[in-house]
Every structure is written in C-alpha cells, then in structure tokens.
Simulated scan of single mutants.
Amino acid sequence: MLANRLKILLAERDLSIKDVVNVTGLTRPSISNMVNNPFANISTENVDKLCNYLEVTIDQFYDYLPWHFSIGYSLRDRKLKFRYEEKFEVGHFLVEASSGHKKSDTGFMVLLTASAPTTDNPALIFSIQTPTNGSFDNLYNEMSPLFRHTLQGNIIESMKDFCIELDDEYNFAEIYQNSSSIKIYVDMYGMPKNYERNELFTCSFEYSFKASNNDGKKS
C-alpha cells in the first residue's frame, strides 16, 4: 500500500491548497484530489514539484506499507434466536494480508449484544474478537495512523454489509417496531494482553431498517 502524505505535510507547515497552487502552478482540483485521496495517482513530474516546494524527500512524501489487505465475513451457519442484552456469536470476520509470497490470515468472531426493544435509543454492539495467534495485531501496530484509518474504514464498510445480511436474518424493523433505524457500535479486539482485552479500535454508525409493510414483512 502506497499513500501520499500531502495533507499531513501541509498541516505541519500551516499551508493551504491555495499556497501550493500559487507556487507550483498545479491546479486546485488536482491538489484537492491528492489531499482528499491519499491513494490518488500522481505523475512523477507533479511529485517532483511538490517535493521541491515542500523540501521533502520522496520517502517523506509517501507512506508505504508492504502489505495488501482483503476483508471478508460470513454469518453463522445456523440462525440463533435473537437474544437481548446477552452476548452471542452471529458470524465470523476474516482479514487476509499479503506481501509478496507471504500471507497472514486472521479470523475473528463477531459477537452481538442487542438492546431490548423497549429501550428509548436502541443499539446493537458488535464485538469483533480474534481467537487466533495475534498476527493481525502485529501488522496493525506496524501501520502508520493513515493506514490504520484506511483499514478501519474498510472494516466499517464491511460491517455495514454485514448488518444488511443480519437484518435479512432477523428483520430489525419487526424487532424494533418503534424505530426506523438503530445505532451500531463496533469494537475490534486483538489478542488479550495481561489477561485484559486488547482494543484495536472502536467506531459507530447509524443503520436504517429496510422498508416493511403493515404485516411486518419486508416489501
């Protein structure tokens, strides 16, 4: 994975996109794209101009991680009865990392804790916990904040898809009849350290239920 650090470099120097445009002659849309998308393709000519302007070397302009990641998940084969305020396993999460001929597969259990339907602000809490050897923890700890943020974003998007499939299984609109959406919390844990859970990151997002008809069945 290769990402530019332009946004960080500008912030460190208290520079604006306008400053870069005025000095380098690069267009505002191209600079904005580089700042907002660290994985954008940049021509060698433009990289040279930016490195010269910012007085940095090529390895200071780019952030590199010699690993590529793919993320997958699966629901539990056998549907369980939906249980409130009790943690139960609903599926599995897989993060695969590859670097050249090296591969690292890490499996996680997805555990769900659901609030009762009578709760004013219903929520689902997903705990993604690794039962394996901690190889993902080591890779995660080697990452820069930029790559951690990117991987977290990919995991969140996968969890949104996971919610859709889980909704197909349990029909949240029928369970939480007084709500049209629910708050989703995701906590990802690595191997325990000193007998305590090692939290890698936590996030939250809103999930809107699929439309239902008056019989509680999805339309």
Results as ranks from 00 to 15, higher is better:
195 Y>R: 08
53 Y>S: 05
178 N>H: 11
190 G>Q: 01
4 N>L: 02
138 N>Y: 11
188 M>F: 12
198 N>A: 09
46 N>I: 03
175 I>C: 03
135 S>I: 01
180 S>Y: 08
146 L>C: 02
106 T>Y: 03
168 D>N: 14
10 L>E: 00
165 E>T: 02
87 K>H: 00
135 S>R: 13
78 R>G: 05
11 A>L: 05
114 A>W: 01
115 S>Q: 10
75 L>I: 05
98 S>W: 10
211 A>N: 12
50 L>A: 14
181 S>P: 06
91 G>I: 02
21 V>Q: 07
63 D>A: 10
72 G>D: 15
190 G>C: 04
150 T>K: 15
31 I>P: 02
162 F>A: 06
172 F>Y: 08
120 D>K: 15
189 Y>Q: 05
157 E>L: 13
122 P>G: 10
45 E>N: 14
137 D>G: 12
134 G>I: 03
30 S>E: 05
4 N>P: 13
19 D>C: 06
69 F>Q: 09
124 L>C: 03
101 H>I: 14
41 N>K: 14
27 T>V: 06
98 S>F: 07
194 N>T: 13
140 Y>V: 07
20 V>C: 04
156 I>S: 11
143 M>S: 10
42 I>S: 01
196 E>I: 04
56 V>M: 08
149 H>R: 12
73 Y>A: 01
147 F>P: 08
189 Y>K: 07
188 M>H: 08
115 S>L: 04
84 Y>N: 05
105 D>H: 11
205 F>K: 03
51 C>Q: 04
108 F>G: 04
161 D>W: 08
174 E>A: 04
75 L>A: 08
104 S>L: 15
186 V>T: 13
146 L>S: 14
200 L>V: 09
186 V>A: 03
188 M>A: 13
135 S>E: 10
146 L>H: 04
61 F>R: 04
53 Y>K: 12
182 I>T: 03
35 V>L: 03
169 E>Y: 12
31 I>H: 00
170 Y>M: 13
135 S>K: 07
179 S>E: 12
